[in-house]
Nucleic acid binder design. Sequence first.
DNA 1: ACGTACACCTA
DNA 2: GTAGGTGTACGTC
Length: 993
Amino acid sequence: MKNGDHLFLVDGSGFIFRAFHALPALTRKSDGLPVGAVSGFCNMMWKLLTEARDTSVGVTPTHLAVIFDYSSKTFRKDIYPDYKANRSAPPEELIPQFGLIRQATRAFNLPCIETEGFEADDIIATYARKAEALGADVTIVSSDKDLMQLVTPNVHMYDAMKDKQIGIPDVIEKWGVPPEKMIDLQSLTGDSTDNIPGIPGIGPKTAAQLLEEYGDLDTLMARAGEIKQNKRRENILAGVEAVKLSRQLVTLRTDVPLELELDALVLEQQNGPKLISFLKAMQFTSLTKRVADACDCDASAIEPSSITVEWGDTARGPDLDQKAETADDKPAEKTEKTQKSAETGQGATPADLVTSREAVFKGQEIDRSRYVTIRDLDTLKQWIAAAKDCGLVAFDTETTSLDPMQAELVGVSLALQDNSASPDSTAIRAAYVPLGHKAGADDLFSDGLKLVDGQIPMGAALEALKDLLEDTSVLKIAQNLKYDYLVMKRHGITIAGFDDTMLISYVLEAGNGNHGMDSLSERWLGHTPIPYKDVAGSGKSLVTFDRVDIEKATAYAAEDADVTLRLWLVLKPRLVAAGLTRVYERLERPLVPVLAMMEERGITIDKQILSRLSGELAQKAAAFEDEIYELAGERFNIGSPKQLGDILFGKMGLPGGSKTKTGQWSTSAQVLEDLAAQGEPLPRKIVDWRQLTKLKSTYTDALPGYVHPETKRVHTSYSMAATTTGRLSSSEPNLQNIPVRNAEGRKIRTAFISTPGHKLLSADYSQIELRVLAHVAEIPQLRQAFADGVDIHAMTASEMFGVPIEGMPSEVRRRAKAINFGIIYGISAFGLANQLSIERSEASDYIKKYFERFPGIKDYMESTKEFAREHGYVETIFGRRAHYPEIKSSNASMRAFNERAAINAPIQGAAADIIRRAMVQIEPALAKAGLGEKTRMLLQVHDELIFEVEDEAIDAAMPVIISTMENAAMPAVSMRVPLKVEARAAHNWDEAH
DNA sequence: ACGTACACCTA
DNA sequence: GTAGGTGTACGTC
């Protein structure tokens, strides 16, 4: 930097607050995301960059930086713990804009500067003085009086909102003292917003007058005794210490360590498309147009960029910015021009919210006496209006069943931040709206159940709630929202614009405990919510929620909403601070409506097929029972491992293979197979009997019981937050473990059928986990094999054993296949030996050989373990984390187990991420192809998606589904290995698979 | 009535 | 060797 250069220093943090209050409250059209300050910032930056010369600044910048506050733990806080202590939390609408303005800065290709321990003002002061010393001119884009001490003949300030330059005369005019006396003046006056003490009774006018009279602060303090006014003299004499402290606080530091030198701030060429991409995402149409014109770009050809906000972009269609996202643009991570070290941030940043929110809510007593019951429509409407005003409401439903497909709505609860007391109040109010509480004897001798008086009619309440729940500009917060989503969907309401505290917790802490509301409440709020059984009883005395009296229900239900809101306030900033917003917004939140729809659709099963199968299985099992009793010489309960063990290893004296951890003889299939191999007839029959009875009890007998009385279909329930790796789980019934591996079991799949005029279409990823492994561990041979489409297990065998692929014995391939799977599972010699029924030493040799042939695998395993030990978690290529808190356990087997799991998680988890992405993208892709009504996704089985497709649409749907799935990793991650999907359609699941 | 162990189904 | 859920037996309360 040299004489004649002109450095612009933009006070980013100051601008945000100023713009927020000064400019109209603009929100993004599509989803109500508040963007007023962002808009003001972008307009100002564009103006500065393109026409600064024509404004009152009068010069064009050669260097420019945007400076932000980073840490609330500044050196001022060390000097004076109460510094900025009475500063309130920023308004909710401002919160998402802090991050957006940083993103805007990067979109403008400008350095975005923040340094831990210092405020933006100190950084600005340091740059300004350095530049000045080199002979450059400086313009500080800010109107903050705290910066006025920096003004000199070469350093000006610029109030962008008033388009007014501020020089020495302007400072004198405004404050009555020249810039170099601003420190003295501020030391006397103090600053109530920053909690800087100063002298009571002395404001800017008096301070200026005193400084004029005595020259400077030191002289004034030395001669304070001469002041005539009694009160003023006393105050000043009593405030010597306060003035000293204040002077320290208001004096800007000019020695901040700078990571970016002045020369690094040189103004670079604008990247038109990058900027337009951001502006389009913000939906700033007129500025987009101006920028496009100026840089001669075709804005319509540029995709909106991926932006990350703390909350509010809920209504964004799942594919809106999907196409423009890139793997390198992760949230809250360093970019090359961002100086940032870990730790907390300024009142505004997520990191600071993490600290402050936790401090407020952890252990804060929850006052249930404030909960209200809403019994009339007017009051409900008032609450809804208040919710709209806040833009934020916690919501919960109370129903008659845990199954959302069966549940009848009994009431809803709401919780709001109570802003009536003061704008930054952390008080929360919550209410319960009973809608379907019933009372009366439910027997033959009475009139039966009657609705309790004092409840809003269901229809009217739903109509009012619909207005709130479908309004994307109000963020609905729920715990396990998929449940409430389905319940409300069945009542004609499609919730839009939401956050789910369960999913936020899952993204933050998968692997650390569960994510149910009660445990989250204990963990984060130190509060135990009323147990459900205290309200509805348990066991024999259990009643459905509609029979709970309304007063009790209010305490329970309102508390749920209250706790949910508190959890959100505590957890949401953590998400941003941890850089996990993207995982949450891409892989979790958009899946909620998708899964809800899948659950609602269900799948048809043919009860007759199952019933016939059940009969066959019963007969076959009975035949085995006779033979078993014959061979055993007595009747016993074959299903009891204990009794079976006594027969086999006690009475019959067979050689016992192994014991279970409780000391019982193991009767596992493995042990029985071994005995059968020695020529014993009984164990084989036990194994076969078990298989038959397993199929009967778990599938053919149980499945018909899950057929919904009205839809006549089976509606599974997916859990989004059950696994550590990111996989879904399925229950009631579990449709992810329907038999497939042998002919007898596969018959059960034939009972899963399509409705007339449709077929079931099954599309599954081929070898997805090995492909992920090839990608993450960068194994050249594996990548090549997948690129060439060769048999991966045969290739492995060939590499390891030197056997040519042509004419390879199946046993050789089988071993290689087991090893490949073993690798994914975090191989151990013990496990592999078990799997292949070979000696440990032999398994050990295989593993050694494998590592020699594929050294990248060993590297991957070691580095993954190291990462897990260091961080306590591992990450998928999409950024999802899986936590292994026991990875450093002193128990060797526990430690080894955690290491294997940690090795597996990035592989299994990435595969899970990929299919999640596919699921989010698939319905829009089908809709775009005009197949939305004809193709319905029904089930997910980890690497497989099952659709029900109209016969005539199958040929069109199949390529859409295949390409969406094969490209699902893109563009977030560009896989170095192709993904392969195989699909087939048939009348039943067995033939389709 | 509820929790745990065992066995076994899936990817 | 990874990740799940469910049914049965059997213990405890």
